[in-house]
């Protein structure tokens, strides 16, 4: 009888634990950023040397002429993404059956990009340039991945040289404001410190590029002007190795979190 009672109690406890874990899985699993249902490439282009035709000067024999030259070169370490986003907030079960949808014309939230297709979102935190490599990736690890030299002016730390990120909610996890490597991608007026915030996060093993979707202010559905005078929802930098005439491409995986 006593044995039966003990088994009954154990069964109740076990049922309770199963219920708790099931709920946890249902709730927490759904909070992670979600892969976008589609990515459409509208256009792509890069630095065009014909935009900068040869300059000339007239030589007169016997003269020595002092010149001041300014010149551009395309970065060999970065790729830019920009565009617009539309989304739907949905209420559905684990099988994808939709209970209700809310269409969002101007979503708010974040876009994430990474070299890896799987991110441990529960470990998400700021990317630490000086982290102990036995515990997590750091600046040396990632710049080596992209063949970026420490002294390069367009390296990762030279680019993400601010720490003025806003509070970022990655699912149920919170990344504190003003704590992560951050930069601001240009608007048509050039460098600025207000819009198109890009921040570096990590799950300790993978680098996660993060950009805050614009229109993130309440009741603001007005798109922000981007680098070329057109309005966009996001502008994003990701590193890519183009050094030493490297012409191979790199696959980036994207996630979106709409709030």
């Amino acid at each position: 009888m006593l044995k039966k009672t003990i088994y009954a109690k154990l069964l109740v406890v076990l049922s309770f634990l199963i219920t708790v874990f099931s709920i946890a899985n249902l709730v927490f699993g759904a909070t992670d950023p979600v892969s976008p249902q589609s990515i459409t490439q509208i256009s792509t282009s890069g630095f065009d040397t014909t935009d900068y035709p040869a300059q000339n000067t007239t030589a007169i024999a016997g003269n020595v002429t002092e010149l001041s030259i300014t010149a551009l070169a395309p970065t060999q370490s970065w790729q830019g993404y920009f565009g617009n986003i539309t989304g739907t907030i949905t209420l559905q079960d684990a099988s994808g059956n939709i209970f209700y949808n809310w269409t969002v014309a101007e979503p708010k939230g974040e876009i994430y990009a990474s070299l890896n297709s799987s991110i441990n979102w529960s470990a998400i935190k700021c990317f630490n340039f000086t982290a102990n490599t036995s515990l997590e990736i750091n600046l040396t690890t990632m710049e080596s991945t992209y063949n970026i030299q420490t002294a390069d002016v367009d390296g990762i730390d030279e680019t993400f040289n601010e720490t003025s990120n806003p509070t970022i909610y990655v699912g149920q996890y919170t990344v504190a404001a003003s704590s992560c490597p951050t930069t601001y991608v240009y608007q048509n007026t050039g460098k600025q410190y207000t819009n198109f915030i890009n921040t570096l996060l990590t799950d300790k093993e993978k680098l996660v590029y993060t950009t805050v979707i614009e229109n993130d202010q309440t009741n603001n559905n007005t798109d922000v002007t981007g680098y070329n005078g057109q309005s966009y929802d996001f502008q994003m930098l990701v590193a890519e190795d183009g050094h030493n005439a490297d012409t191979s491409t790199t696959i980036y995986y994207f996630w979106v979190e709409i709030t």
């Binding site: 759904a30 249902q37 459409t40 986003i85 739907t88 949905t90 699912g171 191979s248 491409t249 709409i258």
Partner: peptide, 18 residues
């Protein structure tokens, strides 16, 4: 956040040539 499944159309540069 908890139940968001996003339908997204991203207009972006993707795998651009070097």
């Amino acid at each position: 956040i908890f139940v968001g499944l996003v339908i997204v159309a991203l207009s972006l540069f993707f795998l651009s040539p070097k």
